[in-house]
Simulated scan of single mutants.
Amino acid sequence: MKFTFIKTTRHRTFHHTPIYYDEAKEEREERARRIKDELGIEQEEDTRSTEDRIRGKMKRKIATHFDVARKEKRKSNLRLVVILIGLMIAFYYLFSSSKEWIMHFM
């Protein structure tokens, strides 16, 4: 029996088997698509592969993310401008009232 004071961890591996993947069905669909292309038969509207559809969805999601970020940046800038204008008005009021206060005692 071997005793160790410091245990080293083993590297973790990732094994994922898709649950709803049917390899035979994918091959049949690809073969049917190729045959239809060779014969010149019209296909259904969605002729893109699964990978292309996923890639398109990711592009739309990324573009949406940038739109949201742009809108948030505009809101932040507007909020900053409103705060700065409020501070300038408050300082102007304080300085103008302090001049009157100082003149009152002189």
Rank of each mutant, 00 (worst) to 15 (best):
M1A: 03
K2L: 06
K2N: 13
T9N: 15
T9K: 11
H11C: 15
R12E: 14
T13Q: 10
T13H: 14
T13S: 15
H16C: 09
T17G: 01
I19Y: 09
Y21M: 07
D22V: 00
E23P: 11
E23M: 07
E23A: 12
E26D: 13
R28T: 07
E29K: 08
E30R: 13
E30Q: 12
R31W: 09
A32W: 04
R33D: 00
R33S: 02
D37C: 02
L39I: 01
I41A: 00
E42I: 01
E44N: 04
E45G: 08
E45Y: 01
E45Q: 01
S49P: 02
S49G: 06
T50I: 09
D52L: 03
D52M: 09
R53C: 04
K57P: 00
K59A: 13
K61L: 04
I62E: 03
I62C: 04
H65D: 11
K71P: 02
R74W: 07
K75P: 02
K75H: 07
N77A: 15
L78T: 05
L78I: 01
V82N: 10
V82R: 14
I83T: 05
I85M: 07
I85K: 03
I85N: 05
G86S: 04
I89Q: 03
A90S: 10
A90M: 01
Y92G: 15
L94A: 15
F95A: 02
S96W: 12
S98P: 10
S98I: 08
K99W: 14
K99P: 04
K99G: 11
K99Y: 15
K99A: 10
E100D: 15
W101G: 01
I102H: 11
H104M: 09
F105N: 08
